[in-house]
Amino acid sequence: MRIGAMLGDISRSLFKRPVTERYPFERKATPERLRGQLTFDPAKCTGCKICVRDCPAHGIEIMVVDKVAKRFVMRFHTDRCTYCAQCVVSCKFDALGMSHEQWELAALSKEAFFVSFGREEDIQALLTQVTCTPGVAPVGPVAPATT
């Protein structure tokens, strides 16, 4: 029975640096395993689309331009993705990965949520088409994307 059982804590804290993180002014390094934006390596992809099948959020689209020449385009929807890494596990060929550096994906425009991976000319060719995946609202032509 005593009054002020946390006296020790508070008096010590007065002389300590606050633990509050001053994000975004000071940034900590993110852990290696942080699940951020998806990465795609068309050279390894086979176009099997298992990742598309297993994705719970319809976050990936894989478009096959030329299977033999390994010309694939992966469209990734940063807003739909739940960052669960199921696609990374599902892909037997190690074509998908997750970046631990790109995780600040909030944006003010819808276009920014739409990232395409693959060869530039393939992306450009596909961008003019309207795509439609089952269960997902059609996505119209979109602004230039990054690789």
């Binding site: 852990p31 290696e32 395993r33 942080l34 699940r35 960052y83 669960c84 890494a85 631990h100």
Partner: peptide, 19 residues
């Protein structure tokens, strides 16, 4: 976060094991 890659939805399981 360091172990699983996320602070809330650890997404540690897959059917048949862990990631």
């Amino acid at each position: 976060e360091g172990l699983t890659g996320n602070r809330v939805n650890y997404s540690c399981n897959v059917l048949g094991g862990v990631k």
